[in-house]
């Protein structure tokens, strides 16, 4: 299967077990949340190149964030809401 072949050829370059998953995943999630500084970008690149569990975790977390942002912010604001707020403000002035 295509998926499996990709997976094994990719993981060929990377170690299959993470030496410190707990710390790595915490770091990866902070980076995705924009919390880490520029120096952590280098650590990130190294982890993604060398560690399969980190690579997989990073990409899964990344795609979930992207899809959340694309799918869950489209709530239509009722047209009259802004006007109704402005009107209420006039009343309490």
């Amino acid at each position: 299967m295509d998926k499996n072949r990709n997976k094994s050829s990719e993981s060929g370059k990377r170690k299959l077990n993470c030496s410190d998953e707990s710390k790595c995943f915490e770091l990866l999630e902070s980076i995705l949340d924009g919390e880490e500084t520029s120096s952590s970008k280098e650590i990130l690149d190294e982890k993604l190149a060398k560690c399969q569990p980190c690579f997989e975790h990073y990409h899964l977390e990344k795609v979930i964030r992207e899809i959340l942002k694309n799918k869950c912010t489209k709530q239509m604001v009722p047209a009259e809401l802004a006007d109704s707020i402005r009107q209420k403000i006039q009343e309490i002035k």
Binding site: E21, S22, F25, P53, L60, V63, I67, K71
Partner: peptide, 27 residues
């Protein structure tokens, strides 16, 4: 104290194929 090692066997491909309301419903 959170256990960051709790790994997920969820696949990127599977998430990318969720084109409907799944993610919104999950949230």
């Amino acid at each position: 104290n959170v256990d960051y090692t709790m790994t997920s066997d969820l696949r990127v491909d599977a998430v990318k194929d969720m084109l409907g309301d799944e993610i919104s419903n999950a949230l």
